[in-house]
Amino acid sequence: MTRNGLLLLIIAGLLLGGCSSMKIEPWVKPYERAHLADPIMSFSRDPVADAFTTHVYQAREGARGAENGDGGGCGCN
């Protein structure tokens, strides 16, 4: 499982490079991304606070993992 998982990650990483070069017309144009670039449109606006909140729940609940969405915004800063 672990060796296969690591191999899968490496292969997926290589594939990601290929996907990034595909030319797909963005359906949300760069000039339409003002709302997405607003700081309030972040899944994790304050990492120090989000890490603490995750800790509070992980210490007291049986579930773990997949806690927070990464990043946010539009990557257009």
């Binding site: 990601l16 595909m22 539009c74």
Partner: peptide, 8 residues
């Protein structure tokens, strides 16, 4: 992390 499809 990889951004793709026009950063969408």
């Amino acid at each position: 992390s990889q951004s793709m499809f026009g950063d969408l």
